[in-house]
């Protein structure tokens, strides 16, 4: 594989940013982190659909010779992945919103405040039982 350094760098930056955001405590950042992550994976897929290795496409012309086209299969994969990513993103949004309405929390700190060391652990236990 040659000439794919820029794709590799882009994927590296996107994955790093995505995982960094997913690990943060604020809900909005987690959501953005996931969106970036799923698109980072899509960039990986689109990077392999090019022709840097000289691999032709699966399609042939009428004489049976390979057409000089880009491999279409990864693009079909991306379409599927985008749809799935959209569905998951909408679920994540709804869950985070529900946590906000249920617990008034917009970050992990408030969400787990009652379980923090020295926090209201005992009180939470009473509530649960």
């Amino acid at each position: 594989m040659t000439n794919q350094l820029e794709a590799a760098l882009l994927v590296f930056v996107l994955f790093t940013a995505g995982i960094y955001l997913c690990l943060s405590r604020r809900f909005l950042r987690i959501l953005f982190g996931f969106l970036i992550l799923s698109n980072a994976a899509n960039v990986v897929l689109i990077a392999i659909s090019g022709d840097p290795t000289g691999r032709g496409s699966g399609t042939v012309d009428a004489d049976g010779g390979a057409l000089n086209r880009i491999d279409p299969l990864p693009q079909a994969l991306i379409l599927t992945a985008i749809v799935i990513g959209f569905a998951v993103a909408s679920y994540l949004t709804v869950l985070l919103y529900r946590l906000y309405t249920d617990r008034g929390a917009a970050s992990m700190d408030t969400l787990y405040a009652d379980e923090a060391p020295g926090g209201a652990v005992a009180k939470a236990k009473e509530d649960r039982l």
């Binding site: 994955f15 997913c22 996931f34 992550l37 799923s38 980072a40 994976a41 899509n42 799935i84 529900r98």
Partner: peptide, 22 residues
């Protein structure tokens, strides 16, 4: 009180799915 327990499951699997796709 319990819905927050789903968040670690969701987040870890989201990362897992992205890695699987890649």
């Amino acid at each position: 009180n319990e819905s927050r327990r789903a968040l670690p499951y969701l987040t870890l699997n989201l990362v897992g799915s992205a890695v699987f796709l890649a």
